[in-house]
């Protein structure tokens, strides 16, 4: 009801002298950046100068979903809607390729620069995305440093993995029997940690579903169960409770999906955990 009064307010405001226009933005760096997608939130918050980002998605501020939730504190949160974004008068919007198509198109129409990022499916994609975001934010040096640190860590992890014995066979298992093949970022992490991706034997290159009998047929040494929350039930975890799988005694490792769901260097944390698991496994067998 109160909002209905805005019509009256509008008339009043129209009659009032128009306030001064927005201050001229700094010439090179965008000063008011909005991110419209959980994964672009991660990169933007990693690479931006303090204060450069004015809004991230509501998911980006949730610790269950986002690795950068703490840094999102105090920012305006959006759901990818124009009405949330436009009042912030952004000069750059960073959007995922699929999730906010209409919003990105409308922003571009209004003359706001839009950076559209594809979802990273490999370390090369992660590097490319970091470079693009850094270039758009005007923080190229920070981006280059981030990539260099990531590459150093990749080398270190590869050496650690190579020092271990024969590759165990692992299967990533998420809700609904969803799995990821070698041509995905999680698959690349798996390969880096020196695992054989069982999904490949099932004919899955990027993503797909494996039923319970498929899991048994593949007989992986490790089932990497994607969990959304550390506690609480999950559809994927229910599969590990399936009598057939329990009878076979397949080992499982729970990995929060947020850790490697987006193409950020922190996805390497998972490789670290996987290598640690290999060490324990080799010691045990």
């Amino acid at each position: 009801m109160r909002r209905a009064l805005h019509l009256l307010l509008l008339v009043g405001v129209l009659a009032a002298p128009v306030a001064a226009g927005p201050a001229a933005a700094a010439a090179d760096k965008p000063a008011r950046v909005v991110s419209l997608n959980l994964c672009t939130d991660q990169l933007a918050l990693l690479l931006a100068d303090p204060g450069q980002i004015v809004s991230v998605t509501a998911l980006g501020a949730r610790p269950e979903e986002s690795l950068m939730a703490e840094r999102a504190a105090g920012l305006a949160l959006n759901h990818g809607d124009l009405e949330e974004v436009l009042p912030l008068r952004p000069d750059l919007a960073i959007a995922g390729r699929y999730t906010s198509r209409f919003t990105a198109a409308a922003l571009a129409r209004l003359g706001i620069s839009v950076l559209e990022l594809a979802h990273a499916e490999s370390f090369a994609d992660v590097r490319a995305n970091i470079r693009r975001v850094a270039a758009a934010l005007g923080t190229e040096a920070r981006g280059a440093a981030l990539i260099a640190a990531m590459d150093r860590r990749i080398d270190r992890l590869r050496r650690a993995a190579d020092a271990l014995g024969p590759a165990p066979r692992a299967l990533i298992y998420r809700a609904g029997g969803h799995t990821l093949g070698p041509d995905s970022l999680a698959g690349a992490v798996l390969t880096l940690a020196g695992f054989e991706n069982a999904a490949e034997a099932y004919g899955i290159a990027r993503f797909g579903d494996v039923p319970v009998d498929g899991v048994l047929a593949l007989s992986p040494d490790l089932l990497i169960v994607g969990v959304y929350r550390a506690e609480g039930p999950s559809l994927a975890r229910d599969v590990t409770q399936h009598p057939a799988i329990r009878a076979h005694g397949v080992e499982t490792l729970a990995v929060p999906t947020r850790r490697w769901g987006c193409g950020v260097p922190a996805a390497l944390d998972v490789a670290e955990r996987l290598i640690a698991w290999r060490k324990a496994w080799e010691a045990g067998s």
Binding site: H6, V18, A19, P22, L77, L88
Partner: peptide, 17 residues
């Protein structure tokens, strides 16, 4: 939407938006 300025408020501060 408490984090977002209302239309009428915005009209006073940033009429373009």
């Amino acid at each position: 939407a408490d984090a977002v300025a209302g239309f009428a408020a915005l009209l006073g501060t940033h009429p373009d938006a």
